[in-house]
Write a protein that binds this DNA or RNA. Sequence first.
RNA 1: GCGGGAAUAGUGUAGUGGUUAUCACAGGGGCUUCCCAAGCCCUUAACCCGGGUUCAAAUCCCGGUUCCCGCACCA
Length: 482
Amino acid sequence: MGEMEDLIELAKRRGFFWQSFSIYGGFSGLYDYGPLGAILKERVYRVWKDTYMGIGAIEIDSPSLTPEQVLKASGHVQRFLDMAVECTQCKTKFKVESLLDEKGIEAVPQTVDEAKKLMSGLELKCSRCGGKLGEPYEHHLMFRVDSTGEVKYLRPETAQGIFVNFRLLKNFNRDKLPMIVLQEGKGYRNEISPRQAIIRQKEFNMAEVEVFLDPDSQGIFQPTMNTIIVLHDMHGKNHEISIPEAVKTGIIKSVDHAFFLEITLRFALSIGLPIPRLRFRQHRKDELAHYSSDCWDLEALINGSWLEITGISDRGTYDLSRHHESSGEKMYIDGERFARVIEPATGIDRVIASLLVSSLSKRESGYSVLKLMPEMAPYPVAVLPLQKKDGLQEKALEIFQKLKLLEPYAYYDDSGAIGRRYARQDEIGTPYCITIDYETLEKNVVTIRERDSMEQIKGIPVDEILSTKGFLGNPVLNKFRK
RNA sequence: GCGGGAAUAGUGUAGUGGUUAUCACAGGGGCUUCCCAAGCCCUUAACCCGGGUUCAAAUCCCGGUUCCCGCACCA
């Protein structure tokens, strides 16, 4: 369990993330992004959004606070509030619903009284140790907010905000399908035991996409990437194959579904997650969500185990038909047909954790380097005077002020020794450092130092540094990419 | 939520009833013949919270909170 611990230590020390409300002892499952983490999160969202905008997506932004009717229609109120019992001997927990199911009773008790009634006379015992079962109790998975007599919940997913707006969105899109709608925002789940820092939180950052398709036409979207990736199917079998090939061989049933696996992979690769740490895993029949007919997760290898970062689910017509019945609004695309929905839903915090863990490495000297892609690094460039005296500090500040107008995320540091400052930037992933030395004073040229190779290129005119908006687009950096 | 372990400066730690609470790294300031956490000097900074036992608690006891490991949970 090493790499995650190293990350947590660095994240806290350098300002990526830390536990929230720590002056009051901290609260389980709640995390803050610090100054660097907040920038990183923004960058990850940017790439995600660009990926989908690139294939014609539109964006909406709906509330977290969701009225009960919406989540009743979606099935969350029924499914997210479990009646549970605990064995008085071995402490194993059971869902009342599944105990009843075993006795052939199909019922979903909503209250403690209901559960008691249904269970009475059944002589239920613990299936594990045969012990006596305790009293039923409620376990809420959604946060309920009661005010002015109206029940609301904090949304467990951003998806419902899109479904309920389907008619308006369809109208906006001038009735055209396919329609791709994305939404970023917080989701809330009352996890029993959140663990692993930002990997499992009660309040977390989601990036969800709903793709609305004509239910009767296939192959509107076609995968084309040759990249070989591991596909772990529902029978537990691994296939090393490209996504288009996986469609041909029938490993992935739907070509449109497959396309969104490919888009998800494209996103993961664009932010710099390495292929060896990635795989797609298909859900087994028994683990599919109530709305889903097929689901592939993109998983990242972290701490030696696979972690879901994106679920690409085929929701079919479930949500639209449910809201159609429940609201009385016509949710058809035409006649009496509902759109089919494919949903790639990404946990941004998990993406960030995977990205940081896979980027963190050690130099031979033992110091840490965060090998983020330059585009992901919180600070793309730092300006460092070789030392403070002889006018170097003044000169460095002068250059920094000008650079800052072109690159708002540029950073300046003149404390301690130069080697220490390089190390500091390495640890937070800054890909380039501009060093102001005596030659800058004499000839107006600087040195650029690259993070991963530690290579330096000297004699770069200051004007060249200040020639582009956004430092990473500066052609001078091509000298490092031979 | 259960069982086991743990909680001391920003980070990692020492400390088995009485200490000006240890050390290192990091941070800030300075000096230096100054390009990869160098050296020297100065400096900031901590006993998770609440109760109890005791003349005296970081240390022992009880509760809470949080973290780690297992189990369970994770549509």
